[in-house]
Simulated assay, not measured.
Amino acid sequence: MNDLRFAQLKAIRPTGKVQQFFDGGGLVMRVTGQGKMTWRLEYRFDGERRSRSLGLFPDVPLAEAREMRDHVRNQIARGEDPDAVVEAPAAETTFGEIVAYFIQNLVDQEMSDATLQKNRWLLLDLAGPLHSRPIAKVRAGDIIPLIQEQIVRGKRETAKRLRSRIAAVFDLGIVMEVCQGNPAIALRSIVPKAEVKHTAAITEEAEFGTLLRTIDNYPNSTIRNLLKMQVLCYTRLGEMRMSRWENINFDEKVMLVPKDIVKVRREHQVPLSRQAIAILAEQQKISGGSNLVFPQLRKRDKPLSENAVNNALLAMGYGGDIHTAHGFRSSASTILNERGFRHDVIEASLGHVESNAVRRAYNRAVYWKERVEMAQAWADLCDKFRGKVSRLAEIEESL
């Protein structure tokens, strides 16, 4: 008796675990944790238990799977060995199909928009030539030209990431039982090591003070206030750009950074100094009722872009090789460490995650008071730096 219906099959959703649905006569729909749906036929011949794949759903529809089941059962009834007859080839899963599963897994894991964008670029654009090929037939020789193209262009880090993402897709393919090996693993040696580029940042106090005074005079009030908040809170730029008023607690003097915009996917709290509260109070009037703290001028539902912030620094004379918006984290970390603040407290304030879960919880509880005190001390130091003049400026003024 047939148990399955087409509507039931269409309604099946991945659960992270293997599921099986029975249609009778040994026909089984097997669904992997990632949602791959394969028809399998379980039967016995001459007392031996056997199993075979009949292809993927919906490429092989329910009616066709039943026909193949009935054909095998008729062979058995006639005393014929089904394995002695050439089977119709199962549908071959393409590399592009597994890429789709891979990216959907990232979405299900609530990865950040930036992570999703990078993976889509690497796997949908750069690895696009592989998509139409059956993943089981993709060889190292098919992947090498894609990687070498990036190396020739001087994009060694991109080449490294591309190989890594392709390898991850093959790992998923192995788990889903659509390929046997991972040809991308052997290609590690063809990717030269990328040069380590540290974020450009000013870490000398007097020069940092000059930067602060320059920011104070920038004409665009929203960008100016965002940069001043970056100085005081040294969050990741995306965390500050996408901050919302609902996550600012003026009474408790705390800014909440939700896990959906945090790189490490864990909620983070930022203590706000008196100076930070004053900037936010001014920005609240400027934002014009937007839910965003730092909205774009013409699109009030969109946050300021990273390019807008770094272009503002460039216009002030601070190019990417001198100081970037992300560099405020390095500036604060270096100066605070040099002034004797506790390293663990600085790391906690930067939102760096302690790998040990117990220690992480301990740090969160114990360091908060010190973090609040350090936030105010840092804001006061920044005011002090604004009053300093660099040695270079002194020399220029004396000429």
Rank of each mutant, 00 (worst) to 15 (best):
F102M: 03
R329A: 02
R120W: 00
G327S: 09
A127Y: 06
Q283I: 08
F208E: 00
A90H: 07
L123A: 13
M255K: 07
L313E: 10
S221T: 13
R139H: 11
V86D: 15
V254N: 00
E338F: 05
A7V: 15
D108P: 01
A167I: 13
P89Y: 02
F45T: 05
R371M: 01
R241M: 11
F6Q: 09
Q376H: 01
K10N: 04
T235E: 01
L227S: 05
G79M: 08
Q148K: 15
K160L: 13
V353F: 07
D344V: 01
A276L: 12
Q8P: 07
R236L: 13
R386E: 07
A65S: 09
R391I: 14
W245F: 06
A315H: 12
G317A: 02
G317R: 07
T199P: 00
T222K: 09
F250E: 03
L313R: 06
D260S: 13
N249M: 06
L280Q: 09
G209M: 10
D59R: 10
S273G: 10
K263M: 09
A308T: 15
S330K: 12
F45S: 03
R224S: 11
H71L: 03
Q20G: 10
F294W: 06
P192R: 04
A393E: 15
R66A: 12
G33C: 07
R73K: 14
N311H: 13
E347L: 02
S355L: 03
P129N: 12
D383A: 12
I190P: 06
V389F: 13
L313A: 07
R364L: 11
I151Y: 12
E354M: 09
H343L: 09
L130V: 13
P258K: 03
E92S: 14
L272A: 03
L9T: 04
K193C: 00
F385D: 03
C382W: 08
V366A: 03
I279T: 10
V28S: 05
D260I: 07
N225G: 14
L122H: 12
I12Q: 11
A325D: 04
F341M: 06
R139C: 06
S330A: 15
N119Y: 03
S390F: 12
R163A: 02
E252H: 15
P89T: 07
T93L: 13
E157W: 03
P14E: 08
P14I: 09
V169Y: 05
T115V: 11
T32P: 01
A114Q: 08
R364C: 01
E64N: 04
L116H: 11
Q283F: 03
N220K: 13
E207M: 03
H323I: 01
G238R: 13
T38G: 07
K299M: 08
L212R: 02
D344Y: 01
L226S: 15
I395W: 10
R49S: 09
E177H: 07
S398M: 11
P295N: 02
Q269M: 15
K253Y: 03
A167R: 15
Y318G: 14
R163W: 08
G289F: 11
P271W: 01
D321R: 14
D260R: 10
S349R: 08
Y367S: 00
D380N: 10
